[in-house]
């Protein structure tokens, strides 16, 4: 449903439309770059309160799938529905419900951690912005370095900040591409906890990663991606890594 809220909608005042959805449906999505095929006929459903893991070798199409889910990339075939909505019928408002942590961290190196968060918070039109920013910095355990330029941060610190930036606007759909990159053990554990909280709060989380051991603790459903195709990782005995290897060996 598209809900119109906000102050009395008089003519000329832009309506603030918020888009709600509980499930993301990926329906037979393909994507080609010229002759190269990045995704072929991928179908999946990600529900709220669920962490969906995408596993696969480099160049398998995981990032392409995340880009398509983020609305920035158009599929060459098939479509994505966000509940009852599509990109075409909701436009800008839908993007407000999606948070993306990409492989590139999307932080301005010349701005401080606080300024980065504040800038993106403004773009999302968030209320109580300063409070949110302070909370996010605390969660990223960067309160003491809040006013340092992010260019001086290590990859791990930037990763933590980028994660909180992606979640600043409390998005329904959280897309994470390699969220464990550069994190030390402690930070990875904090991230795991954070993901559990997100799941409990009813967010939809889709995560692409190579880090089986860390991800195993939180992932509800996992999908094996290879050369643009997907297979559900087999249930049964063994660790996630073993089951993934088995799936890859059987299906590919």
């Amino acid at each position: 449903m598209v809900r119109v809220d906000g102050p009395s909608a008089s003519p000329g005042v832009r309506h603030r439309v918020s888009v709600q959805f509980d499930t993301v449906y990926v329906d037979n999505v393909s994507r080609h770059y010229g002759r190269r095929r990045a995704l072929a006929h991928v179908t999946l459903q990600a529900q709220q309160g669920e962490i969906f893991g995408l596993f696969g070798p480099n160049g398998a199409g995981k990032s392409t799938l995340i880009s398509i889910l983020s609305t920035l990339l158009r599929p060459s075939g098939g479509g994505v529905r966000y509940g009852a909505h599509t990109v075409a019928d909701t436009g800008d408002a839908l993007r407000g419900q999606i948070g993306v942590l990409g492989h590139d961290l999307c932080l301005y190196g010349d701005l401080t951690a606080r300024e980065n968060l504040r800038f993106f918070g403004r773009l999302y039109g968030l209320d109580r912005l300063e409070a949110r920013v302070t909370d996010a910095l605390a969660r990223a355990r960067l309160s003491d370095r809040a006013d340092d330029r992010t260019g001086s941060f290590s990859r791990g610190l930037r990763q933590r900040l980028a994660f909180e930036r992606a979640l600043l606007h409390d998005p329904r759909l959280v897309l994470l591409d390699e969220p464990f990159t550069g994190l030390d053990d402690d930070s990875a554990q904090v991230l795991i906890e954070r993901l559990r909280t997100l799941r409990a709060a009813g967010h939809i989380v889709v995560m692409a990663t190579h880090d089986f051991d860390t991800a195993e603790a939180v992932v509800n459903r996992s999908l094996c991606v290879d050369r643009g195709r997907t297979w559900p990782v087999a249930d049964g005995v063994g660790t996630l890594r073993e089951r993934y290897r088995r799936t890859l060996a059987e299906c590919v």
């Binding site: 393909s30 002759r35 072929a40 006929h41």
Partner: peptide, 10 residues
């Protein structure tokens, strides 16, 4: 031709 290539790969 591109479409045919894509189909072969499928």
């Amino acid at each position: 031709l591109e479409a045919a290539y894509a189909e072969i790969e499928d």
